[in-house]
Design a protein around this nucleic acid. Structure first.
Lengths: 226, 226
DNA sequence: GCCATATTCGAACGAACGTTCGAATTGTAT
DNA sequence: ATACAATTCGAACGTTCGTTCGAATATGGC
């Protein structure tokens, strides 16, 4: 349970705890490789990126890389898990102590955008290669994602309750998924030199989203649409 | 200029116009193959899908497929170009004669969602493999995309003018790109059996979007955000 | 210095990739 | 039936893929 990201291929580490320096060394190098791999996956996409591309990007030999991970798929898993665990963890920290429902939704959006723009490449790799992973690794990543989704659903439901609005589950679902679309789509267009930063962006998007769901037109729930 | 999708590999067709039946036959088969390829690209992603997967899906031999296209990349080009040309064409038809700015924005959203849900796989392939194509083919596809983006920008600007609202270019840009995010993200979550159809979805999303941009809070244009 | 351990590497493995080619087969008009 | 073009195919091309292995090199405690 020492470091979050390492999963040494062999040996559960020596009985004593004396290899701390070595484990940390291993972890530091692995982190470097993960950062490099994130870049490469971002540029070429996971499937099209080869381990030889990684070798070129890191300056390490092909075989040398495999000292740090079992397979290319495991590498994607490590990136995705670390990325999304972090954003969820930060969200929890920032929500702590804040009780106003509207402010809590704003915090969600701000947290997401800030992390998204600061880790644009990792977040693209996460979003874009969402269902590549299979088996246990895929289940774990999907579980974190579902947790994040549920957290946002809860925030919006709380807001609706506080404002005395009657939203059905379907309406909340669509509103939240629309919000996810808004914020996740950013990696396709955001240019850090010309576009606003996370603060301004999250303010505008939060205004838009909140006005959109709070001042919504009353409609019959029948789906009558010309 | 006969049929929209065919680009025979060789021979510009015989001098006379007597091979009409044959060309149509060729085109019908190619359309089948494009549909199959769309499915396969949708399931596995363009890079991870092999021509052998296509061979399996179509029931045609590996070499036989190459009678219909030059390369795997050209196949992606044909899918993307046809898909997005159609959605743009339909948008133009539907906007014709409608003058109310708000209604025109609603038509944009409805058109997009309807086509998106009816051709979910093709649209995912379009969205997901947006910048795979290079060279001439890539330029063409990007040009159509830019045209579509500009059309939406114009619709929103018209709406703002009609309502007497003072939106800067940056605000319009972010609003439109947020809208694109909302509607394009759908392929990641929409389940036709449990989620609403295009009509109901576009109504809810249009309500949300329009309320969001029309009833927006006044803010100073400085990016002051805690 | 020495030893055990951790790290790195060159070289190679079999498999799968996109694509090609010449022959076999089908379809159509005479 | 014959002839000609359109279509389909089996087999193979050279390349690149993810991964492995055993040997070499660096590292740090004695």
């Amino acid at each position: 349970m020492a470091s979050s990201v390492s999963t040494p291929r062999l040996r559960r580490s020596a009985p004593g705890g004396e290899t701390v320096e070595h484990d940390s060394r291993f972890d530091r190098r692995l982190t470097e490789i993960l950062a490099c791999a994130t870049d490469v996956f971002y540029e070429k996409g996971y499937a099209a990126a080869s381990v030889r591309d990684l070798s070129r990007a890191t300056g390490m030999s092909l075989a040398g890389l495999y000292h740090y991970f079992d397979s290319k798929e495991k590498l994607l898993y490590l990136i995705q898990k670390q990325t999304f665990s972090t954003i969820l963890e930060r969200l929890r920290e920032r929500l702590e102590g804040v009780t106003d429902p509207e402010q809590r939704v704003r915090i969600f959006i701000h947290n997401h955008l800030e992390y998204f723009l600061a880790n644009k490449k990792a977040m693209k790799v996460f979003s874009h290669e969402a269902d590549v992973l299979t088996g246990e690794a895929g289940s774990q990543v999907r579980a974190i994602k579902r947790e994040y989704y549920r957290a946002c659903i809860a925030l919006v439901e709380d807001l609706g309750r506080a404002k005395g609005l009657e939203w059905g589950p379907a309406e909340v679902r669509i509103a939240v998924l629309s919000l996810f679309g808004m914020v996740n789509w950013i990696y396709t267009w955001h240019n850090p030199r010309t576009d606003a930063d996370a603060g301004a962006l999250s303010t505008q998007m939060a205004d838009m989203f909140l006005q959109g769901i709070l001042k919504r037109k009353k409609r019959t729930h029948k789906t009558t649409q010309s």
